[in-house]
Design a protein around this nucleic acid. Structure first.
Lengths: 202, 202, 202, 202
DNA sequence: AATGAATGAGTGTTCATTCAT
DNA sequence: TATGAATGAACACTCATTCAT
């Protein structure tokens, strides 16, 4: 893992393709994506310049150059995640027309497709990190506000908050339990949180 | 929570403090308590032999002697926490006689006394760690089972699970939001999850 | 690998059989045998109290008790080896009646049976260690004297010395080369070193 | 053997010495030379990043930076030695014109000049290390091939192999025995191995 | 006589960060 | 602007040795 070990420092531009990438406009984003990958795998404390650089296939100096410190890299990675996730989340609900649609989407949320693990882990990591680093609170608040706003379009603010809490808890449970809960239970819990009534409420 | 961390009475009493502490039973527990303190402050990845040793006022070698690896120290600290927390949690409900009592206790749970931060952080850290380390799953399952069993005495198993998820989500929200949610909302959410009916149900 | 990690220090005399071995007269030898095993595998610097204790299935304290220091353990292990090896070596030649027999035995020496690796490694380790630690010279001299004395019964002292050197070199070559040398070459080399003449000579 | 280890002329020239040594080409070689020094003194298991760093007058991080692991440092140090030693060895024989010259050089080899100890120890260390680490076999084979090729120019391949073995054995004996063997014995042994005949043979 | 808890020095290694180029 | 060599602090872990029992 040491950085060197190359006989020749100049590293002959032969090999695999590294070299000669100069002027790479999307490098920042590639680095941030790499940081998120590391985050998912190793947690917030597992982010290191080196791991991210390797993931992003970018020289080490490039990471320290674009991000003044690890804390900044971490913060921007989370910001980048929240931005993407917000858009993604909103997109999920654009087609929702009825209460049934809503419930379907939310159940799907808990039961999870392939990316549930990733987004759940990132979400929890962000929450936990924000608990300790107030600088990240702005992000969690932005994310919370965004998700509740989306939900509130169908339910009213209070129910949205409840629902949000319930979903977070159920997702964690789903990820941790060995035997998955039957869909009906999840559906029932969500419907209960939505309230008996039909339209937007409290 | 026990008063473990205080210097043992029979200790040196010399100037510096360390020296001649040989033969210190309960050292393991002191170390585990210290590990939990570090865990609360710095997270699961922040646990290091050195930090724990300093916290426990114990030489570095003592930590590595009693715990073969950091992973083991982590696991045992979590186990120690779950054990304590389970007892504590059950104690909370011994006096519960009516549904009103139950709701009161649960609301208090979310609004939190002084130790809510500690137990919430430890709980989330454990959940997140268990997501990555299957060896910790046994602990989360034991903890989940214990807390649901307690709740189920009043509600039936399904409602207990829902409640559990809701509480976890609301506690995280409460810890992260700057302005605390009014008690009534919390109470309402809990009552809704408990269901309209009176007795133990699903 | 830490020594502790047992919940109960007293370690209930149930399990596998460790406990209750008190008064074990051959313990010293068992420890020395274990030390030699470690020596073969990990080299002279790989000997540690712990590894030896595990190998010998003996408590750690037992090793430090019987051997005041690691250096002493090492020295005594080598001494124990030389003692065994000397007897073994002499036994090899008791049946030798003719020059042909002698050559056969020596060729077998180089080509090696199953234990050649072990004895060669131990021999080289001892030589190398003695180069640095004069306290071990007595052992190498004893061993050299013993082996030459045996050979000299058939060849005279000078030829014995030559033969000894040649055998050591050839054994190392045999151990290191991937393709084994044909027996005839080995035989020819040995016969050359023995000299053309028949009886004991120079 | 080059005078690498001296402080570079262009260095700090301040008081303490260290500081501002940035940009030091040839540092790798200085580290390897230092590693060989340590190897001679303390053996293959005595090589540590720290000892080498001190010997090379280089910060610790510099060693770990240039060599990803200790195993790699070890391997490269051995490789560096074999490279140097091969050239040196070949040089020894460039002036050899007659069989007498050859014998003289070989006897000198065994009786040793000032650097015999160093090269012998390094050679034996390499052999022993290669016995355990197959990754080093390539080096021992390269070295063996090189030395035999040189000898074979005068003797033919089989005699070269014999000679090689004999020399290795005799050098070890010479290093270990307190009273040096008379030159005539060494000479006689070598001549015997060379065979009675005059020209290159088997 | 025998043991294992205890401890501090030392190990290999990783890393954030700096800085000459 | 961009990079990778450089460095010192910190890390997890191993160990010889001591010593109370």
């Amino acid at each position: 893992m040491g950085g060197a070990n190359v006989r020749d420092g100049h590293a002959a531009a032969v090999g695999e393709g590294r070299r000669t990438r100069r002027h790479d406009p999307r490098r920042r984003e590639r680095v941030l994506d790499a940081a998120l990958e590391v985050l998912v795998e190793d947690g917030v404390a597992g982010i290191t310049h080196r791991k991210v650089a390797v993931r992003a296939d970018v020289p080490l100096g490039s990471v320290t150059y674009h991000f003044a410190s690890l804390a900044e890299l971490r913060a921007q990675a989370f910001a980048w995640y929240v931005e993407q996730r917000t858009a993604e989340y909103e997109a999920l609900f654009t087609e929702v027309a009825s209460r049934e649609d809503l419930v379907d989407v939310l159940v799907g949320q808990v039961e999870g497709g392939p990316s549930r693990y990733r987004s759940a882990v990132l979400g929890f990591e962000l929450h936990l990190a924000a608990l300790r680093d107030p600088a990240l609170r702005a992000l969690t608040q932005r994310w919370t506000a965004a998700s509740r706003t989306v939900l509130a379009r169908f339910t009213g603010p209070q129910t949205a908050a409840r629902l949000d809490a319930l979903l977070e808890g159920m997702i964690m449970q789903a990820l941790l339990s060995t035997d998955r809960q039957p869909s009906e239970c999840i559906r029932a819990a969500i419907m209960q949180a939505l309230g008996a009534a039909g339209g937007p409420g409290t």
